[in-house]
Amino acid sequence: HMVEDTSNLLQHVKFQSSNFENILTWDSGLESAPDTVYSVEYKRYGEREWLAKEGCQRVTRKSCNLTMETGNLTELYYARVTATSAGGRSATKMTDRFSSLQHTTIKPPDVTCIPKVRSIQMIVHPTSTPIRAGDGHQLTLEDIFPDLFYRLELQVNHTYQMHLGGKQRDYEFIGLSPDTEYLGTIMIFVPTWSKESAPYVCRVKTLPDRTWT
């Protein structure tokens, strides 16, 4: 039984998702006292029954990790929060329909930048997610998004950048000057879902050239 929000105890109930880590967050209302407690329920879109999230019942914090409960990529979900004040007043609010495929944001990639004398190698490491395949192994972003690709940029000077990109993980910027500092930025793109990560940035100095010393 959903109690109409008769008081200002609760607002902004929504999922925050990053690399498929799905966290439900909310804010207290203007009239919320510090001793207000919150209880979380969730369900799959299309089902009637709401399920109580263990560990997020009558808590005072304003977030709840629902990653495991919302990990099926073919499903869509709802969550709702009930706020109960010490005086017994309560309010319940629900999220919009949530699809982790659509809503998750992409974190910067994990990259190793390796300086050499006249080049810089960049190795992008696969990004694992909490999502598991049917056989239980953890999926990477590359597994989930078939059109995912990387874009790499090397800032040579104020006016000149070098660009590389593609689906592979190993890249090398060549033809550089020894003993010189460069700034590399690497981003992940998923065109179909219009997703773009924040950049991973590495500041690297090429090695001195000791061949004639």
Binding site: Y45, G46, E47, R48, T74, L76, Y78, M94, D96, R97
Partner: peptide, 19 residues
Amino acid sequence: IQAKDNITSVRLLRKEVLQ
């Protein structure tokens, strides 16, 4: 428009249709 659908217990394109 999706937010206007407040029948959360019914899904038309269910698993039996697409899986």
